[in-house]
Structure formats: structure tokens, C-alpha cells
Design a protein around this nucleic acid. Structure first.
Lengths: 341, 341
DNA sequence: CTGAAAGCGCTTACAG
DNA sequence: CTGAAAGCGCTTACAG
């Protein structure tokens, strides 16, 4: 059988209380005893039984990450997994474990959440935004008083704890970059008119440009299905505008759009970045095959995950902590499709 | 405080043993008692404390998934996460939980493995292939007798339990597809000469073609860095061969290569699939932007994960079970770059 | 500075 | 069919 705390106690000639205190670094144990117990633990190759510890302590040092884990999710939404890795990194540093719970197969919205809370198999809950859309779920979490953080603004007001990325700010970064490079005639090709993220980026972009006295003409704002073809056509149309109206820089709302835009530019025979510049949000998934390598407004979602991990650990110490904020700063990855500043 | 088994026992007027037996579906409890206890449990909203259960049972019903969880891993290797989702799906069905352990920050190879084993915070270990490269780690797992499965052939002989995908077989599938469509002059553009997967696919492809009496000429086998440019050039070179030697179908070892090949075909003005056909392995990451949508030899790694989950559950019941096999069948996703059969 | 003892909430032989 | 009791391996007031 495995070595237990009693074996160590017997070998070291002390009580199990003392071994336990050494284990937990109590300062009341004499250096000599500590030393002796440590030696025995090392010799017997003793590791505390995590099951017993968590039971005795009434906590698990485990955090549950609630999200959709269906087939192909990893290809559709790798960001979610990058966030998860960020969460993991912080938890592991503090000796916490991370376990996964899938929400995609729930028959009713609170199912997974209530199970995790009532089973006490975790001390806290990290919920990926896609998994919490209902007020009902929010109420459940709130009324249980269970430590939690939602990654992604819940979409409705509540006293839930959440963090999110600021897409409007990313739009402003895109604008600032163009302004710093002196591109005063600019265009924006976005996703569908109904796409929330696309609209936030567009709004941030237009707003910041206006702050600098630059107006984006209606014909320089395009909406697409984010497919290569529609993006190509949107860009082509803009590039064929009369010289006075033709944009000198195109902001692509995502890398799929950038693929189409880059082809249109290529087919129009324009030189990048001298005759036309462009940049894109998000390096994933397609920025790697765009030639020349584009300038990118990127968001470090791993870091957002790490922050979520930090916050949950702080909440465990101080349950009344309320965090509701946009945390992660966008960053510009300078490519060859805009002039360096 | 939370409702415990004693509360239920008191309310139902039975002993905690009886409640426990109802909980665990013992057949020795009378229907009447069972019914009464169940009613009380429902009324009090009782859920067993998972910590206490796992401690009393001496098992956790938790499985650890050991892998690299570093930043950007989700973009570089989404397959690993898809496998993980497959694993999860099977474990969850049987009431097991899945927790994550990162190996990317280990200072010595067995560190994470030995920690998991000695802490007893899991009943079994699923190790992603990338995380186990050393004989040393294999020895540790084997000598501990800890239930495990490695996803991906360990690369050395051992008594470890593992499953893997069969890339050679996928190569054969590609060959069969071309043979069925009557493409008797075919080419293969692969990754680097040192790339293991690329070579296995190539070998399977050539072997099966030979079985049907078709030899692939040396000038119809290309190696690249999997970049768009080199792939473009490799394809261009083949397409410029004299008509007697020019391939009628090109097999691309991955979707990055397919992007370059598809552009080369486009620039040569050849009609797909009438004048030239092509197919690619792996839908991820770039097959979505290739026009027309390519025929793909795809591998369902989610299913491989699900099988790993099944196997580990079987091993928990029968620890002597040894599984070493290639499990997942490739499948052909018919696109518009080859004639349908 | 150290130890005896209660307790965490279940499971499981064993007795009846 | 049901229950009393030991046990799982720790932690933590409390007493000394």
C-alpha cells in the first residue's frame, strides 16, 4: 500500500499532527523536528493523498472550466482553448487543478452549473461566455454564492463577475496605427451587419478616426459574410473608386476577409504598402498564408485567461470581490502591409 | 450548511447506511424504503459530496489528461484539443471527470507524471503523445502499474498502452480514391523529407498505387517546407512537365501545401477537376479557403479521443488489458477537385 | 513546541 | 431487508 501520514509519523517518532504541521509549514514546529520529518518523508517517498487532503480541508483546490467541448470546437474556436491554457497556467502556479465540464449537451441551461455547485467537486467556476446566455443561470450562480468568473460579457446586467476583451478599443488601435502612418483615406471591410464583434471594431475605428478629423465615407465601409469571394468583391469595388475617393488603406475585420482583400489588391496590380495598405484584426486563422505578411491588431486571449485565473484565486480569498471589466489590451503586430511608424 | 447524508437519513427515518445503499442502487433495500429515501433526497435537494465519496471509495472517478498547454498551443495544435474533447465525451458519460495537467513547463521529463501518480488525484492517466518521449517516463508509468493510455505511438517499444492514427492507411485511402476515379498519372507533394507523418502518408500512397500497377515517377514526388511558395513552385514544376509525364492528379500532404498547389493550378489556367485534379490530407487549417472546395482525406481525431476514453474506462475494470493499435479510420470528404466516384 | 482527539461525509464488511 | 461501527487519511482547534 501507499505510504501514509502515519507511516511517516511512526518512522520519525512524532505524532501525525506534527507531520501534518510540517506538511503545512506551520511555524510552531522546531527546526530540528521539521528537519527530521522532512528527511523521513523524502526517504519514504511520501506524498499526501490529495483525496484525503481535500476532504479534510473541505475544499478541493480544483477549479471547473465550463464551456462547449463538442466535436470540432477546437477548430472552430481555438481561442477558447487558448484562454483555457491561460487559466491553467495561473491555477497551476498556486497548486490548483483545473477540470473541464462540457455544456454543449445540456438539456436545460443551468444543468452543468448546478451540478458543479452542488457536488462540491470544485471551489470555483470559470464559465466561458458562450456557455451562459440566460438570466436564469446568472441567478443560480449568484444565489448559490459560488465563486465564479465569466469570460465574456454576459450580455445582460447582473452582479456576476466577468471580464472581456474590448473590441471597440481594438478598433481604436487600428485607427491610431493608420493615423500614425499618415493614411488619411481609409476603408473598413467588416463581417455581417449583425455581427457584434465586427460592429464594435468598426465603431471604435470610426470613432477614433473622427477624433482626428477623418471621416470614413459610406462607400468605404463594406459588409461581407467573411468569405473570400465577398471580401474580394468588396475590396475590388473600393479599389475601383475614382482616385479622389479611393482609400489608401483597408482595415479588414478578420483574417478571412484579409485573404479576399489581399487577392483583390494583387489582381488590381497595386503595390503594397506603397499604393495601398491594409491591416487585419486577428492573426488566426489565415494571416499566416497572406503574402506579404499583414499588419495585425491582435488580442492576447491567453493573457485574458491568465487574468481570469488570477481573479478567481483572489475571489477565493476575498469572496466579496466584484470584477467587471475589459482587461486585455490589443497589440499591433507590424507586418509588411502598412508602413512602419 | 449543505445537506448531508445524515440529514437525509434523519428525515427519512433510516440509517445513513441505508441512504448510502439507496444512493448506490443496492438491490437489498426494499422498494418502499428506496422510494421514501428518494423522495426525501429530492425534497432536500441532496447531492452527495463528491470529495467525501472519492475519499471513502478510495478512487476519484477523475482522469488526468497530460499534454502541452502552452500559449498558442490551441492554434498550433487544435487536433490535440479535439482529441481531448473526444476523451471528455466518453468519460462524462460514465460519470468521470477530466482534469488537465500541463507538461510544457516541466524541468525534467517525468515530473508531471510522477506527481499525478503519487498524489492519487486521478484513477488513470491519458497522455498526449507529444508529452512522452523518454523511455524513462515509460518505465515510471509501467513500474507504478498506473492505468494509462498514450495517444500517439511512443516511438519506442514498450509495454505501454497506446493508440494512434494510421497515416500510412490514410495514404492508401488517397491512392484508392484516385484509382477509383481513374487517375492513373498521379503526383504527391509532401512536407520535408524528414517529416514522419508526411513520409508515412507518402509510403502508404505509393504502396497502394503500386498494388494497382501504377508507379509514381520521381519527378512526380515533391518535398516542401509546407509553405505556400514552395508548394506553388513544386506544383508549377510538375504542371510544366511534357504532356506524357504531366500528372493528372496531385495529392497534397496537408492543406497549406494545397493552398499553394491550388494557386499554381489556377495560374496555369487549368480546369479543375477536368484537366487536373487534386486532393489534400487534413481539412484543418486551410481547406476552407481553397476554391473550389477540395476533396479531403480526413482523420477523425475526436473519435480517437473517444476511443481512448473508452479504453481507459475498460482498463479501470480490467487492469491487465493491453491495447496497442491504430484505431481511427480515415475518411474521404468528396470535394470539387476530384471527380466523384 | 507537541500530541490526543474530534471531525470532514461518505462506503462497506459484518451482524442481526 | 436494515443498522451500528470501522475506516478512508488528512486538518485543526484545543490542551498541555
Amino acid at each position: 500500500m501507499a505510504v501514509t501520514i502515519s507511516d511517516v509519523a511512526k518512522e520519525a517518532g512524532v505524532s501525525i499532527s506534527t507531520v501534518s504541521k510540517v506538511l503545512n509549514n506551520w511555524t510552531t514546529i522546531s527546526p530540528a523536528t521539521t528537519e527530521r520529518v522532512r528527511t523521513v518523508m523524502a526517504r519514504l517517498n511520501y506524498t499526501p493523498n490529495a483525496r484525503a487532503v481535500s476532504f479534510a480541508r473541505q475544499n478541493t483546490r480544483n477549479i471547473v472550466y465550463l464551456t462547449a467541448l463538442s466535436k470540432n470546437e477546437a477548430y472552430r474556436n481555438p481561442h477558447m482553448f487558448d484562454i483555457m491554457c491561460g487559466v491553467y497556467s495561473q491555477l497551476a502556479k498556486c497548486g490548483y487543478t483545473l477540470s473541464l465540464v462540457d455544456t454543449s449537451e445540456d438539456t436545460y441551461p443551468c444543468e452543468s452549473v448546478s451540478r458543479v455547485i452542488s457536488q462540491k467537486c470544485a471551489d470555483a467556476l470559470i464559465v466561458h461566455g458562450s456557455a451562459i446566455t440566460k438570466q436564469e443561470t446568472a441567478d443560480l450562480i449568484l444565489s448559490s454564492g459560488f465563486p465564479h468568473i465569466i469570460i465574456g460579457h454576459p450580455g445582460f446586467d447582473s452582479a456576476l463577475c466577468w471580464i472581456d476583451t474590448n473590441h471597440g478599443l481594438a478598433g481604436q488601435y487600428a485607427a491610431m496605427h493608420l493615423i500614425n502612418c499618415d493614411y488619411t483615406k481609409a476603408a473598413f471591410i467588416g463581417g455581417r451587419k449583425t455581427d457584434v464583434i465586427s460592429n464594435q471594431r468598426l465603431k471604435g475605428f470610426i470613432g477614433k478616426m473622427r477624433d482626428y478629423g477623418i471621416r470614413i465615407a459610406p462607400e468605404c465601409i463594406g459588409y461581407t459574410d467573411s468569405g473570400t469571394l465577398e471580401s474580394y468583391q468588396a475590396a475590388e469595388k473600393m479599389l475601383q473608386l475614382p482616385p479622389s475617393k479611393r482609400p489608401l488603406a483597408i482595415v479588414c475585420e478578420n483574417s478571412c476577409i484579409a485573404v479576399g482583400v489581399s487577392r483583390a489588391i494583387h489582381d488590381c496590380g497595386l503595390k503594397v504598402p506603397d499604393e495601398i495598405a491594409f491591416l487585419t484584426f486577428d492573426s488566426f486563422p489565415y494571416s499566416g498564408i497572406i503574402d506579404p505578411p499583414p499588419t495585425i491588431v491582435d488580442i492576447d486571449v491567453y493573457d485574458m485567461g491568465a487574468q481570469a485565473g488570477d481573479i478567481i484565486l483572489r475571489k477565493l480569498k476575498n469572496p466579496s470581490l466584484l470584477v467587471q471589466s475589459y482587461t486585455t489590451l490589443p497589440m499591433i503586430l507590424q507586418g509588411k502591409t502598412t508602413h512602419p511608424i
